[in-house]
């Protein structure tokens, strides 16, 4: 759709459901996937809660959009950076998060992890390398 390829970073720092930012930012990611940019998502602070396994909104009357994260791999959105310190501060580990994967067609469709657990320092380097940052 365009000749320019930029490094797009979607910065997620808020928990889901309490506000709409998590869901509406995901809507941007999905539409953005059609533009063939080099996309990364960062989950920092309460943003890590967006990826918690086992979300069930049946008694809250709200739409459960957590399954949408599972579809990201099919949209070629395969780089989901989760900040280690944010998980630890919240008493969480990788095991508490949804198992998000993508299939690498350049590697015989091998299933690979989309979530990249990184330290704050490592993520700072990633962020520094981006061309454009969307905040929600």
């Amino acid at each position: 759709m365009s000749e320019t390829i930029k490094k797009f970073m979607y910065l997620n720092r808020r928990a889901p459901y309490g506000t709409i930012y998590a869901w509406e930012s995901l809507e941007v990611v999905l539409i953005g996937a059609a533009f063939d940019q080099d996309v990364s998502l960062a989950f920092i602070g309460d943003g890590v809660y967006q990826l918690l396994e086992g979300q069930d909104t049946s008694e809250s009357g709200m739409k459960n959009f957590s399954t949408t994260y599972k579809a990201l791999g099919d949209y070629d959105v395969t780089k989901l950076y989760v900040e280690k310190e944010s998980l630890e501060e919240r008493g969480l580990t990788l095991d508490d998060l949804m198992p998000l994967t993508w299939e690498d067609e350049d590697d015989d469709w091998a299933e690979k992890d989309s979530i990249r657990l990184v330290s704050r320092d490592e993520l700072a380097d990633v962020l520094d390398d981006q061309d454009i940052v969307y905040s929600f």
Binding site: S2, T4, V28, G32, F35, V133
Partner: peptide, 20 residues
């Protein structure tokens, strides 16, 4: 208009500034 306009703005501009 659609969210594509936001993505396109990101691609075509030199600086995106977000106010939230």
């Amino acid at each position: 208009s659609g969210l594509g306009q936001l993505i396109e703005a990101g691609i075509q501009s030199e600086r995106l500034v977000v106010f939230g």
